[in-house]
């Protein structure tokens, strides 16, 4: 088994993000089964559904590249959703909601980063605990009942289109492009790459390792807040359950995208296609008439696949 894994062709295949294969495979299945589905108008609608996931992935890949992880996205989404839909701020403007949402996410990200980098607490435990606290907090505020409606303006923006593509999808594409430029062109991007490769060597090379990890988490919190705004706009109502499965899906998409937990490799495009694969998966499942339970099972299997792949990769590297 190990000898086989060291074969050059297989090694090269393993260095391509698996999300490309998954995406191509799903595309092929769809092309065979329902070729007429492959048009921008229809795909746009399906892709729009996973835009919150896709945005969350941008933050996840950032923290995973510095060998951390962020599972608090679910809590951020809930809290921001609650702020907007509860009527806590009657008559507030769109700008106000966006500002308070982004500020909330950033603050939570900063807290995560501080705990992980400075206090050296396990990232999984910190961010999961934060998410649970936020979930309880929102349930306490809303006394268990789902809050009210989201201001109509959110839904109106959400439903606009630019040509064949919905605005949220374009927004996601733009953010992805921005993240690519950000990571490849700034000093911070170099820091992220070096900390991901070896935190020890980065420290000796004069990279501020702690600060890099804190900043990565803070940005991930900020990005989770953007995802929360889009998610809130998409469901148009308040909810105490929305978005709880998104962080683990984001982790799976990031792993499928070749950013391996604990090994800071991979770029932005791999995870991007990881998120797109989830969109295609839902299309394929719908096409074959598989209901919600079946989709859950498939989702779980993909996460499992990502975890197995991660084991294969890191085992192979040593």
């Amino acid at each position: 088994m190990n000898a086989a894994l060291n074969h050059p062709i297989l090694r090269r295949a393993l260095s391509i993000p698996p999300s490309y294969f998954v995406f191509a495979m799903l595309l092929f299945v769809l092309w065979v089964a329902r070729p007429h589905m492959l048009n921008l108008n229809i795909m746009g609608i399906f892709i729009r559904q996973i835009v919150p996931l896709g945005i969350l992935v941008l933050g996840q890949l950032l923290v995973m590249r510095v060998r951390s992880i962020d599972l608090s996205g679910g809590g951020v989404i809930l809290l921001v959703n609650y702020f907007i839909s509860s009527g806590l701020f009657p008559g507030a403007s769109l700008t106000f909601f966006i500002a308070i949402g982004l500020a909330t996410g950033t603050a939570i990200g900063l807290f995560n980063g501080y705990m992980v980098a400075r206090r050296r607490v396990s990232a999984v435990i910190v961010t999961l605990a934060v998410s649970i606290v936020l979930l309880g907090f929102v349930q306490f505020l809303s006394s268990g009942k789902p809050p009210g409606d989201v201001p109509a303006m959110f839904g109106e923006i959400y439903n606009t289109r630019w040509g064949p593509l919905p605005t949220p999808v374009l927004f996601w594409f733009a953010l992805t492009g921005l993240m690519m430029i950000f990571l490849s062109r700034t000093v911070f991007g170099r820091y992220v790459a070096s900390v991901g490769e070896s935190a020890e060597a980065a420290h000796f090379a004069g990279v501020p390792v702690e600060r890099t990890v804190i900043l990565a988490h803070t940005l991930a919190g900020f990005i989770a807040a953007i995802a929360a705004l889009v998610q809130t706009a998409s469901i148009a109502v308040g909810s105490v359950r929305v978005g709880l499965d998104l962080p683990i899906l984001a982790v799976a998409a990031t792993i499928l995208g070749g950013v391996v937990f604990g090994r800071g490799e991979g770029g932005v495009l791999g995870p991007f296609f990881g998120a797109l694969s989830f969109a295609l998966l839902f299309v394929v499942m719908t096409v074959f008439g598989i209901d919600e339970p079946g989709k859950l099972i498939a989702q779980g299997l993909i996460i499992l696949l990502a975890a197995i792949f991660y084991g294969l990769r890191s085992g192979n590297a040593n």
Binding site: R185, T186, V187, F188, G189, R190, Y191, S194, A202, A205, G206, V207, P208, R211, T212, L215
Partner: peptide
């Protein structure tokens, strides 16, 4: 090689 030069600068500057 460049990391020592890069790390003299602030995070948000262009590398």
């Amino acid at each position: 090689i460049a990391i020592s030069l890069v790390s003299e600068r602030g995070e948000m500057s262009i590398a």
